[in-house]
Nucleic acid binder design. Sequence first.
DNA 1: GCCAACGTTGGC
DNA 2: GCCAACGTTGGC
Length: 152
Amino acid sequence: MKYWLMKSEPDVLSIDDLKSKKKTGWDGVRNYQARNFMRDEMKKGDLILIYHSSCKVPGVYGVGKVTKESMPDPTQFEKKSQYFDPKATHDEPRWFMVEVGFVKKFKQAVTLEFMKSEKSLGDMIVLKKGSRLSITPVEKKDFEKVSAFGEA
DNA sequence: GCCAACGTTGGC
DNA sequence: GCCAACGTTGGC
């Protein structure tokens, strides 16, 4: 089993949205590295730190899990979608997603500011300067530490 | 709103 | 295949 961190803007999908929807297709990712993680590496049962970006207090707000593995992202075929990709075909989809289920919302957010101050989390990719990747693998020890902080 | 960092595109 | 130009991300 692997561990991941997935970014979302709370205006688009917040941890509360995920809680009320129970699960959702993680559509709209248009970055090849992130796509490859979803297409090839994320497996059912993997746990996910749900991170909120582009908001007042960026940080990890809860935990999700992979409930369905790799499938074509339907928004690439929808002409009216902002994620429409004219080069994608049903025979050869370009973009893939996984389905993410709600696990829990932390008692307290583990903020970016806090994670930066916590030297033991220094290896996390999301903390690296200039890191824009919206899906990143997370080490088990870091997942556990962040979870512990969130539930403290 | 600014801007550094990064990814993608396209001319050559 | 290089790389300049452009677009996007995301913290601040």
